[in-house]
């Protein structure tokens, strides 16, 4: 059976269950057919990226274990085709610069329709 290319795989990385639920709910409201997996820390995210090869990934920064930006760097070095948005409350210049240096963007929490729209636009533009 041919794979429908409009069905994307999204990996949500966040230690907060509420944040994961919010991102999932907002994304599925727009793309109910997308396949969503979740990871609760950077190490978990790297393992998921290797096994699931998602198209897209939202990545929190402050989590137990390695920072999300370090996880994103490792994921991108192995899987440069994955589009990652750093989705975090840590919105300082240093983190914005770090996101830019990884070739991605930082979207400021909270998870709202607006911040999800920014994220989805970035995914759509960087196909």
């Amino acid at each position: 059976m041919p794979v429908d290319s409009s069905i994307k795989k999204l990996l949500i990385v966040d230690d907060s269950k509420v944040s994961r639920m919010l991102i999932r709910t907002h994304v599925l409201a727009q793309y109910p057919e997308w396949i969503i997996t979740e990871a609760v820390c950077g190490e978990d995210a790297i393992a998921h990226a290797d096994s699931d090869l998602p198209d897209y990934c939202t990545m929190d920064i402050n989590m137990p274990g390695i920072p999300g930006t370090d996880a994103a760097e490792q994921i991108l070095s192995k899987h440069p085709s994955i589009k990652i948005v750093i989705f975090s409350a840590n919105i300082q210049e240093t983190q914005q610069n770090r996101a830019r240096s990884l070739g991605t963007i930082l979207v400021a929490k909270p998870v709202t329709e607006k911040s999800i729209a920014l994220t989805l636009n970035y995914f759509a533009d960087s196909k």
Binding site: S16, K17, V18, S19, N62, S88, A89, N90, I91, Q92, E93, T94, A108, K109, P110
Partner: peptide
Amino acid sequence: DALAEVFSIGAGRAALSLSEIVGDEV
């Protein structure tokens, strides 16, 4: 979990303001 997430967003905002005061990452 919801409260911790709300406050971590607050902490992020506070860190941004403080980093502008001290001129370094907070």
